[in-house]
């Protein structure tokens, strides 16, 4: 103990179902055609954006369960989290369902955090079906972390755009679908960045550390994956990660990309790209899952990052710690895979 951060799953939990729901702007983005549902307006028929966010998680969870072709009654546990104070979106959504619930907070890394924990619980033989879910909403994040929507201010060039969307997937002991073969739990790293408009730079060191630990623990390298994808480092953050990895002697090639960087089109003017829990969650549960099911990707290293800040901490002058958890998903179960 103490010299590995990685769990290698002997029983290879299966991702039997997935679902992604997004807002209209996200629907117009680069992944638009892959999402299961695009909302017509981002209030989703509710009288507050917080309720809309909650409703998105509920729909994502229900959708994922349907996609897994299992009965809701056979779900044992829900692992979910979001960005709002006291993770209200997840907890309030959980009361709609009749299964046990563990609330998680890993900021924008929640998708891989829930997958890593869920896969560990299933691999250990403790549960049969676990739902992992997370969401974010542009308007709820703006009011909690930044400014009122109608304030006429300018965003700095490093700013990112919180994705309105929720993703969910079902992990099962058996079934058909891509499998989770290993997970690397990340350390919290803080390189002294205190600019809340530059989360990419704050989180990139955590991504580097988790990636290095993962390669060390699994004895793999960047070339062993069809896709290495971070969550929402954005344009700047992913460039920084490439530099940081190069300093450590590892060259990330064309198989590396970042969900946030890819999310929106150039015309959507989101500066450094998408961010938020929903960013990696919706890309993973739509595009990446589709490619894995089709076998276009054989092995994906999915490693969303989270900035573990709060407005209280930053207003008191604290710097921004980051965390990153990595999960390896494989499309087919080869005998001697990692």
């Amino acid at each position: 103990m103490g010299n590995t951060q990685t769990v290698i799953f002997k029983n290879k939990p299966v991702i039997t179902g997935s679902y992604a729901i997004v807002g209209p702007k996200e629907g117009d983005g680069n992944f638009g055609e892959f999402f299961d549902y695009v909302m017509k307006d981002d209030s989703f028929g509710e009288d507050s954006y917080e309720k809309a966010e909650r409703k998105m998680i509920e729909q994502a969870i229900t959708g994922a369960i349907q996609s897994a072709k299992i009965k809701p009654s056979s779900v044992d546990l829900l692992l979910a989290g979001d960005l709002l104070n006291q993770i209200i979106s997840s907890s309030y959504a959980a009361r709609q369902f009749n299964f046990a619930y563990l609330g998680l907070f890993g900021a924008c890394s929640t998708m891989s955090e829930s997958l890593a924990i869920g896969a560990s619980l299933i691999d250990g033989g403790h549960f049969d079906n676990i739902v992992c879910s997370t969401a974010s909403h542009f308007s709820t994040a703006e009011r909690q972390f930044r400014f009122p929507l109608e304030l006429g201010n300018q965003r700095p060039p490093t700013a990112q755009w919180t994705v309105t969307g929720a993703g969910a997937c079902v992990l099962s002991k058996k079934g058909n679908g891509p499998v989770i073969t290993s997970a690397t739990f990340g350390k919290v790293l803080d390189y002294g960045i205190n600019d809340v408009n530059d989360m990419g730079a704050a989180m990139a060191p955590a991504a580097m550390d988790t990636m290095l630990s993962h390669f060390r623990d699994t004895k793999t390298g960047p070339d062993d994956y069809d896709l290495i994808v971070t969550g929402d480092l954005g344009k700047l953050g992913s460039e920084i990660l490439i530099d940081l990895m190069e300093d450590k002697g590892i060259k990330l090639g064309l198989n590396y990309n970042d969900c946030g960087q890819m999310y929106f089109t150039r015309e959507q003017a989101t500066l450094c790209g998408g961010s938020g829990c929903g960013c990696s969650a919706t890309v993973f549960n739509s595009f990446i899952m589709k490619k894995l099911r089709e076998g276009k990707y054989k092995r994906v290293l999915f490693m969303p990052t989270g900035a573990l800040l709060s407005t209280t901490a930053t207003q008191q002058g604290e710097t921004i710690p980051g965390v990153c958890h990595a999960v390896v998903i494989e499309s087919n179960v080869a005998k001697n895979s990692i």
């Binding site: 060039p157 490093t158 960045i193 530059d198 730079a201 700047l236 460039e239 920084i240 530099d243």
Partner: peptide, 8 residues
Amino acid sequence: YVQNKIPK
């Protein structure tokens, strides 16, 4: 390093 990297 980050300051130099930030788009102006």
